[in-house]
């Protein structure tokens, strides 16, 4: 992904900044300019809000065929996670054996390298998720 395109979204990718609708209070991630529930009423009332980074796995897969930039990670776990504030996102699950991942597992956000632009390009960072301590077997401690 081109550097400016990645750079523009850094606040959300580094710090899980979403938006809270000033009209109905719904939290969205990534940030939205218009609340999907309130429509026009919400315009100009969407406030930035940092999300907890604590959530639950709704579903997941173990990816074996991936783009070349993810070659070193294969196989890796990719999941849809519901944050405790209600918003959902897609992220990798790390620090766990893929076979130990379960729907319903509690996970927390950590800051990791996501990729880089080309072979010698700028490094791109963002969130991945790991099991909340005490769940699953971490390869480091298993």
């Amino acid at each position: 992904m081109a550097t400016p395109r990645f750079w523009r979204e850094i606040p959300s990718r580094y710090n899980l900044i979403g938006t809270k609708c000033g009209s109905c209070g719904t939290l969205d991630f990534p940030p939205r300019a218009v609340c999907p529930k309130c429509g026009r009423k919400s315009v100009g009332k969407m406030m930035k809000q940092k999300l907890s980074g604590i959530g639950t796995i709704i579903s997941y897969t173990i990816v074996y065929d991936a783009p070349s930039s993810f070659d070193l990670l294969k196989p890796y776990v990719l999941a849809v996670i519901e944050l405790k504030e209600g918003a959902r996102l897609t992220s990798q699950i790390i620090n766990v054996e893929p076979g130990d991942v379960k729907i319903g597992m509690r996970v927390e956000a950590v800051f990791r390298k996501l990729g880089q632009e080309g072979e010698a390009g700028i490094l791109q960072y963002g969130y991945k998720f790991k099991p909340v301590t005490g769940q699953g077997k971490s390869p480091a401690t298993a």
Partner: peptide, 19 residues
Amino acid sequence: EWETVFGATFPALYAIMAR
């Protein structure tokens, strides 16, 4: 912006539905 950059492939997203 919010799926593929995090490692989502097209089959991966359908696999998430399947699971």
